[in-house]
Nucleic acid binder design. Sequence first.
DNA 1: ATATTTAACTAACACTTGTTAGTTTGATTG
DNA 2: CAATCAAACTAACAAGTGTTAGTTAAATAT
Lengths: 189, 189
Amino acid sequence: MKQETRKEEIIKTAARLFKEKGYSAVTMRDLAKAMGIKAASLYNHINSKQEILKEIIISLAEEFTSGINVIKSSDKSSIEKLNEIVALHVSITSKNTYGMASLNNDWMHLEEQLPYYLELRSNYENEFRNILKEGIQKNEIINSDVEVMLFSILSTLRSLYLWIPKKEDLNSEELTSHLSSILINGINK
Amino acid sequence: MKQETRKEEIIKTAARLFKEKGYSAVTMRDLAKAMGIKAASLYNHINSKQEILKEIIISLAEEFTSGINVIKSSDKSSIEKLNEIVALHVSITSKNTYGMASLNNDWMHLEEQLPYYLELRSNYENEFRNILKEGIQKNEIINSDVEVMLFSILSTLRSLYLWIPKKEDLNSEELTSHLSSILINGINK
DNA sequence: ATATTTAACTAACACTTGTTAGTTTGATTG
DNA sequence: CAATCAAACTAACAAGTGTTAGTTAAATAT
């Protein structure tokens, strides 16, 4: 149907530049130069700078949404569900560290799609919160402040894009299990 | 000496705008409008847009540096030192959530001061890492991957600027103690 | 061979960017 | 009262912004 290949090359390159300098600081001429073409030529493949950002962010946000929906529907324990959430973040982030930077830092520059993104994000946090609450009820998780637990864990998972590239020695399984262990059991001896 | 008041008003307003849209997306005209004056009038008080960013970020980075230097020199246990690091982050971030957004997201737009910032940042991480290593040696902290522990805790602390404004019900002491407990002991029952 | 498609190009646009120069106004100080 | 000064203003700049229009050249399909 469409020339998906070239468009996706542009989006990937854009994601890399967005990670380095942020969406607003990257010009279409920067992006073109990184692709080895002229700025105007980009418009044979994409409709606007905005659209590039949208494609990067929304597809990732939808991946997280469908991921957590699978996890919540399983009959595993709450702790096991948390493990799976960690694995979900490690998996998505490993495949696209550049895009995750945009999702974390440039979502406010979405325009028409901003309400949709915020909805996905808020739904995700709600599902995560529900899993924690369920764990407390079932006596698997300490009865501490749910919001502090939620944002503490989520902050770590959302920052993964920053240090996965620096930790290439650990593979995904090792990283997931170390991380789960620290998030769930802490660092106290 | 100088008219510190007006300049600092500008810097505070800028920090708020930088948090909402990022440094690159905020124009001097945006900033002027938020101050109720014209863009050119800003230059009676500041020398450049760059300088505003520098003042926001470097002063915060230096606060962290001097904070951790005090902590490392104490003769407390490693776990107590960790508690103090958490308190340091909560304290600095509570006083300046806007500025912390710039420090986290816009440091790459520092120009002449970038090497200095990176040095402060890397020193801070080293001191933090040393405290963790010391804790492992003294058998206070589990002998797990130091880098995973470091970045897990630091990610949470660095994200504080995002959710402290949403958690105004908790005061600093409560927040610090909840957070320390979760970071150190985890959420497992 | 001809027609179509893909993907590049040049040239230009209207607008926005950070910043400078020079001026005015109202308050404070000598 | 005169002089100074802080802090605003208008006007303008050169450079850079995203994007459009129209064209060209090579590859692919008919």
